[in-house]
Design a protein around this nucleic acid. Structure first.
Lengths: 132, 132
DNA sequence: ATCAATTGCGTTATGCTATAACGTGTGCGA
DNA sequence: TCGCACACGTTATAGCATAACGCAATTGAT
């Protein structure tokens, strides 16, 4: 799927996420966009829904937050499963992919005739800097 | 870690989850325990915290729900990573484990000197019965 | 025995996350 | 020009989770 032109709201939300150091909650995004005319959570959630659909933003289920995809150009949907390492000290998130993990999970799912649609792989812990 | 004796509230919550067909939200559990004297969400959350700590209950981050561990006797913490296939039609959840997936993920994390503490692997889609 | 620390419990209040339901305007093809 | 799809704005509400207080029971060291 190719990413269509973003609307004004989508662009605003995407820019906030891109400039952010780490993941942001929907309400944090809302606060950052008050000066741009955002007044209600739905304005953020609707933009996020589209950005998630386009694959340029990821949702981190375990911390109810959103992060820009680490691959600015290629569409992330083509990478197979996406995994995240989330540091609980500094909040930094590292996105990574492992084809072998994909392969094993997909194999298991196929053996069960389970039709996968969305996946979540999130590891929480402490990054190298914070583990000291 | 060996599971200590459960308290009254922990037992009630655990029994509800064990008897349930699928995952339950904390508030659903609360409703089911009103007749047993439960009045407030915290009573449920506190019991769940302990049950999660003991490894006899899992939290499904992507649907804000909780499910009893599929291994009634052995402690689930000894199984390495736990993965779930969640059917979005019927709500059924299948817990599974794959040593190779563990190995690959742990390998990557180790290469980054990332100290993993909690993990979430959840695949949402449609089970064999519902995919028809 | 008693004091302190820990743990579980109950209650009230609050905060955070997400969506329902309504209406408006705009662009575009039949 | 009618109907449709889509983005948007607003208000209200639903759903998920925890803070902060106090009380009771247990344990274990002095």
């Amino acid at each position: 799927m190719t990413t269509p032109m973003l609307t004004k709201n989508q662009t605003l939300v995407f820019d906030v996420l891109t400039k952010a150091e780490g993941p942001l909650s929907a309400y944090t995004i809302l606060d950052k966009l008050r000066d741009n005319g955002f007044r209600a959570p739905l304005q953020v959630y609707r933009a996020l829904d589209k950005l998630l659909e386009y694959g340029v933003v990821h949702r981190l289920e375990s911390i109810n937050s959103f992060v820009a995809c680490a691959h600015p150009h290629e569409n992330c949907h083509s990478h197979g499963l996406v995994a995240f390492a989330i540091c609980e000290s500094c909040g930094q998130v590292t996105e990574f992919h492992d084809h072998e993990v994909d392969h094993r999970l997909m194999g298991w799912l196929k053996s069960q005739k389970f039709k996968a649609e969305k996946s979540t792989i999130e590891i929480r812990g402490h990054c190298a800097s914070c583990a000291a």
